[in-house]
Write a protein that binds this DNA or RNA. Structure first.
Lengths: 203, 203
DNA sequence: CTGACTTTGTACTGACCGGTACAGAAAGCT
DNA sequence: AGCTTTCTGTACCGGTCAGTACAAAGTCAG
């Protein structure tokens, strides 16, 4: 995984694996946020020099975007899995437990990269902030639609506000991320989740 | 409010009001976080020069701590008010509505400064992060105690886990902060809160 | 081999960061 | 009047930031 991956065509071949370097960059951004991660942090973690980074990834911002894509693809799969569950309760349970796993990984940064990055980006990275917000909105809308369907299917009471319930669930997910980032231990987060599921509306 | 406040004793009198300058600094830190706020941002907003800032407040970090004290004193009163409410439900309601007001202020930054600052501080500000986390833990413990009392008083079912319920409520507060920071409108946050209160356990 | 082409590491750029040295200005004390 | 004390503005410090110019090195086609 740490060697070149594609058939070189012309010129001197690249001496590192782009995917592996991107995975290392993801770890740095995940831990430190966009502005907190310096090019020195990134190049050291990726094991390449600055010009190599710029040649392969454009600049810091486009590197971050690629890392964010990778993060959402590999680390936020639990959102999509949750949406596919058969009942509203299972949707919530899958997302809450998935977030817990994502956020308390053994040797991974604690907290959700999306949350960290959206909060911790100054005016210089306004466009990044906006993009993260927009991606979050897409997920939220899918949840609203899913809960509307659940109401029709009868596994959510009719008086429940699907948008409000989505806000509640998203707030839980974000709160789990923040509390984990603040160093809460996993056991306490599990109690949070158990209590939250205990509050979840029954059909 | 923008003129000196105390009786000068010796030497040239200070030409600005310390309290007013601190309030302006608070706005900057609240909006941009600790590392995102540069000394240039701060001095411009405060209307003073760098040496004046250093003479009056020590350095950037101690200025931030003073601003954080001011924030908790003036903007987080709803936590203490909530704890004083007679029932667990009113505790939650007061805190949720207080957070909403705090976070959707007309010409104030959106989001809770504590949340923003705890997430958006790099390794340089580790001691600040730790202090914010510690202050949060104090509040949490008070909530746990309050909900334990509520169980004894019978306005919370006995099977409820007070620590888990505190995590649930804190996650809501943090989620409200983040979603507001991401530009959610106030109406949607109100629906989040109404739905959350609808889930709150009845005695 | 020669030339085209691309990646490599070194060493640099200008801009900004937090923090400060210093001299002049404004007040009270004697 | 001086003298002391404190604040004010200018102009600077070394360090770090994101980004790049440039030449050496490696691999292809011919």
């Amino acid at each position: 995984m740490n060697k070149p991956e594609s058939i070189p065509v012309r010129g001197r071949p690249r001496e590192f694996c782009v995917d592996h370097a991107l995975a290392q960059a993801l770890r740095v951004f995940w831990t430190k946020g966009y502005e907190g991660a310096s090019l020195t942090d990134l190049t050291e973690a990726m094991g390449i020099t600055r010009p190599s980074l710029y040649a392969a990834f454009g600049n810091k911002e486009s590197l971050f975007r690629k890392a964010l894509d990778l993060y959402e693809r590999e680390k936020m799969a639990y959102i999509g899995q949750g949406l596919a569950e058969p009942t509203a309760r299972k949707v919530a349970e899958t997302m809450l437990r998935g977030a817990l796993e994502n956020v308390t990984g053994e040797d991974e940064p604690h907290g959700c990269m999306r949350v960290i990055a959206s909060v911790a980006c100054g005016p210089a990275a306004q466009s990044l902030h906006d993009e993260i917000v927009q991606r979050t909105e897409v997920f939220k809308q899918m949840m609203v639609d899913r809960f509307e369907r659940a109401k029709k299917e009868g596994d959510l009471p009719a008086h429940i506000d699907a948008l409000g319930l989505t806000g509640v669930l998203v707030a839980w997910l974000q709160g789990i991320s923040i509390q984990s980032n603040q160093g809460i231990n996993r056991k306490d987060l599990e109690r949070l989740i158990e209590t939250a599921l205990g509050l979840w509306p029954s059909p």
